[in-house]
């Protein structure tokens, strides 16, 4: 019975608006990625939609949304490797939603703390994936950091985790958490009331 209860409760999170929000959130992630390219900065911005959804619809919806960001890339371009990295997005979405559930986004000074936790999670999940799937290499600027750590005699896993964490913190420490957070704060009441979790964030 208890198990049934869990499933019903999770299913109840997937309201029509929450389901519709997922493709749109993935669109925002994509928009963030395009801005990242235009900026030419090591700030990914490709989880802003996932984090935004987490603050509106909670951990389960955001987790699914995050994971499908990568599933869709795989289906559109055939990049099978992208599915593995979907677990990183899933983790970020779920954790950010968990923070929303706990009400930790309410105070402005907690936002960067949540951001650091998200960065650490992203680094923890992505490190083993990037090693098994791509031999630790991303094909981006982060590889230089990784090589630097290795060259200074760091242990392989320390190097991969440290380089990932360093680069994730630039992204999620402030910018990728602050932008969606500010957007939720400024949402007009008539929109905000349509989502379950906004009350816990604003």
């Amino acid at each position: 019975m208890a198990k049934q209860d869990w499933i019903t409760r999770i299913k109840a999170e997937f309201t029509t608006i929450a389901i519709v929000m997922i493709p749109i959130a993935i669109g925002i992630n994509q928009a963030g990625r395009l801005i990242h390219e235009a900026l030419g900065l090591p700030v990914w911005l490709d989880t802003i939609g996932t984090i935004f959804t987490a603050m509106l619809c909670g951990p389960w919806v955001a987790g699914v949304g995050g994971f499908f960001t990568n599933v869709v890339t795989a289906i559109a371009y055939g990049r099978a490797t992208s599915v593995f990295f979907g677990l990183v997005q899933l983790g970020i979405g779920f954790l950010a939603g968990f923070f929303a559930w706990k009400g930790w986004w309410k105070k402005w000074w907690k936002v960067p703390l949540c951001g650091i936790a998200l960065a650490a999670t992203a680094a923890l999940i992505s490190a083993p994936i990037v090693v098994t799937v791509r031999g630790g290499v991303s094909g981006q600027g982060i590889d230089l950091v990784f090589a630097f750590f290795l060259a200074t005699g760091q242990n392989f896993w320390t190097a991969i985790f440290a380089s990932r964490f360093l680069i994730e913190i630039l992204d999620k420490g402030i910018i990728s958490t602050y932008i969606p957070w500010a957007a939720v704060k400024r949402l007009p009441e008539k929109y905000a009331r349509m989502f379950k979790y906004t009350k816990k964030v604003r």
């Binding site: 608006i17 749109i24 959130a25 925002i28 801005i35 509106l56 969606p180 957007a183 929109y191 349509m194």
Partner: peptide, 13 residues
């Protein structure tokens, strides 16, 4: 990104 978020919520509804 601000208008992007607002527009997206309106769209979702």
């Amino acid at each position: 990104l601000g208008p992007l978020f607002m527009g997206s919520v309106q769209n979702a509804i």
